[in-house]
Nucleic acid binder design. Structure first.
Length: 580
RNA sequence: CGGGGUGUAGCUCAGCUUGGCUAGAGCGCCUGGUUUGGGACCAGGAGGCCGUAGGUUCGAAUCCUAUCACCCCGACCA
């Protein structure tokens, strides 16, 4: 490909609305342009990268026996109503009416569609297992799209779905997909971490997440130093804290006037105490149920853990109205004393709370708190509809199995789920087993965010001059940079090498633009093609060209005659390193 | 959705507080010339309904109101 013929609009200045490195470089290197919030046009260079990623994913999926299909992006809402996920997804799912008044959704994912396909086509255990996938656009109307391709509203996802007659058989495919994912990320040249994850609104029995560690990641990975345990923050378990003992007899609980101080910080300020001494009471809506959740003042409720207690039901913070009704006080003054289980349906108490010797908590009376509250004495920590459990996020200082927990940020690029029969039961994907007995298909599902691989590769591979692509997903493998194109020998040398590389199926970009050397070098570094061959007048006079790796600072002089061969050799070496 | 911020040339931004001449700079773009191994230089040039709508005023990029878009901080996920 000739550079002068290609739309590669590089820019010197950093675009104003790009915050993180990958977003900035994507725009600067001319890989994409924003159309509207969270939607991007991928330009020739960017689309080439995405296609390379897609091809790697496709190859590995096909090799594992998965079959590619393509499902509609516009789906009838009725399908989603069957599984109740129209409610779970809520506003994240875009819906619109067509001319007949039917409500359609823009696919945020495809469990419902694929399960209804299976319901129609799969009747016998003889057809199982089957693993089908697609690579297509998804649309999610995110609360807050940001960070360019990291969290866009429209994105390309590879989503695979497997159907099984038995749980053991699901385990087999799950393990196989686990392996396939390792191969895919290896080939893409990414350092990844695998963590245990929650299944969230997907439902199901088990899940792993593939994460690329990096500062701009929005996920938090929790792990032990010896790597014996790694999970995302939604899942990460913590050891129970030791029960605190008080040296003195705690006096009776006592109401104190705390005008206008609702937040934990304000109360601490006012009463000259620390968040660890506080007991925070949050009112949640779990399905239809009103649930009071108690955590220590310095801890946060983990809504995934909360959802798991209620078998994956939809969880959200209650609004002001419900809180006031449930507590009889304005927001900020809720507490467990005196009204547990009568105004709300369940009380969930975090272990760290039951371990407290004494606490300060809201009095369920506007502008009042209660001090000297002893869990177990002043409110029940067990009983009907009262559950003591782990319902908070792990924090610095926590341990698991006695080992210190460490924290790291990461980008989630893929996730595996054991779905079980959540979808097949509701949509009626059933089969007859060898005994003629009917059962619901057991399902697994496996997603990969293509754009996120693209973004994480840049996020983890760049320097102050621009992108440093891993060879396998670089838009081109080799860049030829002739410097003095009026010089016949230079022009011919560059052209010969270009043709030779093309003949050998190397992805090569030929910078035939009439620009000064500096400008070409700057663009070359910015777009980050792994191998650059520089053809300059002086070196050519000596019978040489220069070969330079984008990842190295030194270039190497190579005789013109063997330049193409040498470049091919480097391509092969780099490829070998990325082999799965 | 709540909180904060920004909309002026293709891009990055100044001008707005304290209304007043023809609305500016750098980069990019076009023409000509000189240059040519790390984003060259000189000369000339094109390009703006100052986000949109209304209002105040003799006069609005500047003040007021509404509205839209975008960005940042919080609850979601590939």
């Amino acid at each position: 490909m000739r550079y002068s013929k290609m739309l590669i609009p590089t820019v010197k200045e950093v675009p104003a609305d790009a915050e993180i490195i990958s977003h900035q470089l994507m725009l600067r290197a001319g890989l994409c342009r924003k159309l509207a919030s969270g939607t991007y046009t991928y330009l020739p260079l960017g689309w080439r990268c995405l296609q390379k990623i897609i091809n790697i994913v496709r190859e590995e999926m096909n090799k594992a026996g998965a079959q590619e299909i393509l499902m509609p992006a516009v789906q009838p809402i009725e399908l989603w109503q069957k599984t109740g996920r129209d409610v779970d997804y809520g506003e994240t799912m875009v819906t619109f009416k067509d001319r007949h008044g039917r409500i359609n959704v823009l696919a945020p994912t495809a469990e419902e569609v694929v399960t209804s396909l299976a319901a129609g086509e799969i009747n016998s255990y003889k057809q199982l297992p089957i693993n089908i996938y697609q690579i297509s656009f998804k649309f999610r109307d995110e609360f807050r799209p940001r960070f360019g391709a990291l969290r866009s509203r429209e994105f390309i996802m590879k989503d695979a779905y497997s159907f099984h007659a038995t749980g053991e058989d699901l385990e087999k495919t799950y393990a196989q997909m686990y392996d396939v994912y390792c191969r895919i990320f290896k080939r893409c040249g990414l350092e990844y971490v695998i963590v245990e994850a929650e299944t969230g609104e997907m439902g199901g029995a088990g899940s792993h997440q593939f994460t690329i560690p990096c500062e701009s990641g929005e996920d938090v990975i929790v792990y032990t130093e010896d790597s014996s345990y790694a999970a995302n923050i939604e899942k990460a378990a913590v050891d129970q804290l030791p029960k605190q003992k008080s040296d003195i007899e705690i006096p009776a609980a006592e109401e104190i006037h705390t005008p206008n101080v609702g937040s934990i910080e304000a109360v601490c300020d006012f009463l000259k105490t620390k968040p660890q001494q506080m007991l925070k009471t949050l009112i949640y809506l779990v399905g239809e149920k009103v649930v009071g959740v108690l955590v220590r003042g310095d801890h946060d409720v983990n809504s995934e853990k909360l959802a798991q207690i209620f078998k994956g039901e939809h969880v959200e913070l209650a609004n002001e109205k419900i809180i006031e009704k449930a507590t009889g006080a304005k927001v900020g003054f809720a507490g467990p004393v005196g009204l547990m289980s009568n105004k709300w349906d369940y009380t969930i108490i975090d272990y760290a709370v039951s371990a407290m010797a004494v606490a300060i908590t809201g009095a369920n009376k506007t502008d009042y708190h209660i001090k000297n509250v002893v869990p177990g004495r002043d409110f029940a920590i067990e009983g009907e509809n009262v559950i003591a459990t782990d319902v908070r996020n792990a924090v610095e200082g926590d341990t698991y199995n006695g080992k210190k927990l460490l924290f790291k940020k990461g980008i989630e690029v893929g996730q595996l789920f054991k779905l079980g029969t959540k979808y097949s039961k509701k949509i009626g994907a059933k089969f007859l087993d060898e005994n003629g007995k009917e059962s619901a298909c057991i399902m697994g599902c496996y997603g990969i965010g293509i754009n996120r691989i693209f973004a994480s590769a840049i996020e983890t591979g760049s320097d102050s001059d621009g992108i440093i692509w891993p060879l396998n997903i670089a838009p081109f493998e080799v860049l030829i940079t002739p410097l003095n194109q009026d010089d016949e020998t230079v022009a011919k040398t560059a052209d010969d090498i270009y043709k030779k590389l093309l003949e050998n199926n190397i992805d090569v970009l030929f910078d035939d633009r009439d620009l000064r050397a500096g400008a070409k070098f700057k663009d070359a570094d910015l777009i980050g093609i792994p191998i650059r061959i520089t053809v300059g007048k002086r070196a050519v006079a000596d019978g040489n060209v220069e070969i330079k790796l984008r990842s190295e600072s030194q270039s190497e002089k190579v005789a013109i005659e063997i330049a193409a061969e040498k470049a091919i050799e480097i391509v092969n070496t780099l490829k070998a390193k990325l082999k799965a």
